[in-house]
């Protein structure tokens, strides 16, 4: 290892996705002791601003490309700049944040550069001069130590697995602009529009997650408006239940999660699903309401620091993971819980 590291900062409209700075934290752990260097690369509209920000984390160099061909994220023109930069700097480690774009760019650059890719890494160390990465596999049921026999080693860092380095606003630098590598005429894909995700706290980055399951629809005291068919009535019940969840989440500044059963039943969109076929979250506090805790759900939240479960069924598997459990009906417990948090947190 020569200790030359390039970190890809994933950004959208001039805002870095938080896990990008965490990737920088991972790079600091590797580069600093080996006497290496850490550079960043930021692509797309307003990337210069993000590149400037990166200097406050103590990096050596920031490259950016705000060419118009990169205004919309498209894999090929992005990958062309990433690989050109990687070649030019002869880096032996490329770090990406585990985001949709980060994972895709990691895969593309590893194969183009003849390196090897190790996505979604939760720990990194240098042992006998070689980089050893730890990755959860089989939905976190196992941990694998992985090594790569080719250069560059391409890694994506899992959200909330590494610490964002501390910022020193006094540190400043002049970012270097690099050129785009594919002219618009050669780019086969055209972006025709966007639909914004609903506003709210991002689930994967959240410090606190309040999640609801099938149980949220189960309030016998509520009766759906007349005229709904069975399916619509069920969805209505679920939506009422998620109002309870939303209120608690609002008081805690939390993101809203859901089990697959709640998503499949139509109570809430898929982007809220936590678990093996949903999102992996690792907040400081995870509150599971009316969720049984199936193994596939656990795969998405097991690493949360403190887990709280409220469930009617004392045998629900979720209690095995919980630091605090309440056997009870969420319709009785959650409203006073929300009120109590409101009172206590306002002080």
């Amino acid at each position: 290892m020569n200790g030359k590291i390039l970190v890809y900062i994933d950004q959208f409209k001039g805002e870095a996705l938080p896990v990008s700075w965490e990737a920088l934290g991972a790079a600091g752990m590797l580069g600093a002791p080996a006497g290496g260097s850490v550079s960043v690369l930021v692509l797309g509209a307003e990337s210069r601003r993000v590149a400037e920000q990166a200097f406050q984390f103590g990096i050596q160099q920031a490259y950016y490309c705000d060419d118009a061909t990169l205004d919309d994220y498209r894999p090929d023109p992005y990958a062309a700049v990433v690989t050109a930069a990687a070649r030019a700097g002869a880096y032996d480690v490329l770090l990406f944040p585990t985001t949709v774009r980060g994972r895709e760019q990691a895969a593309l650059s590893a194969v183009e550069l003849g390196g090897g890719v190790m996505p979604d890494v939760t720990a990194l160390e240098v042992s006998d001069g070689r980089l050893v990465a730890t990755r959860p596999v089989y939905a976190g049921k196992l941990l694998a130590e992985v090594v790569c026999d080719a250069a560059p080693v391409v890694i994506t860092t899992r959200v909330r697995a590494f610490k964002k380095p501390s910022a020193d606003p006094a540190l400043k630098g002049e970012p270097v602009r690099v050129e785009a590598a594919v002219p618009e005429g050669d780019i086969r894909i055209k972006v025709t529009g966007y639909r914004q995700a609903e506003a709210g706290v991002s689930l994967t980055d959240a410090n606190v997650v309040v999640a609801g399951g099938r149980g949220v629809a189960n309030n016998p005291a509520l009766s759906p408006p007349a005229g709904l068919d069975e399916k619509a009535a069920e969805i209505w019940r679920g939506e009422q239940g998620f109002k309870l969840i939303d209120e608690l989440a609002a008081v805690l500044g939390a993101a809203v999660g859901a089990s697959r059963a709640a998503v499949d039943a139509g109570y809430i969109p898929y982007e809220h699903q936590v678990g093996q076929t949903g999102k992996i979250v690792s907040p400081d506090l995870y509150i599971a309401l009316g969720i049984s805790g199936a193994i596939q759900h656990q795969a998405g939240m097991r690493s949360s620091k403190v887990i709280v479960a409220i469930n009617k069924d004392p045998d629900a598997p979720i209690f095995k993971l919980a630091r605090f459990g309440v056997v009870g009906d969420i319709y009785q417990i959650v409203p006073p819980l929300t009120e109590e948090f409101r009172k206590r947190l306002e002080k």
Partner: peptide, 10 residues
Amino acid sequence: FEEGIQIAEC
């Protein structure tokens, strides 16, 4: 994507 849906043609 994290921010929402991109609509594209290719």
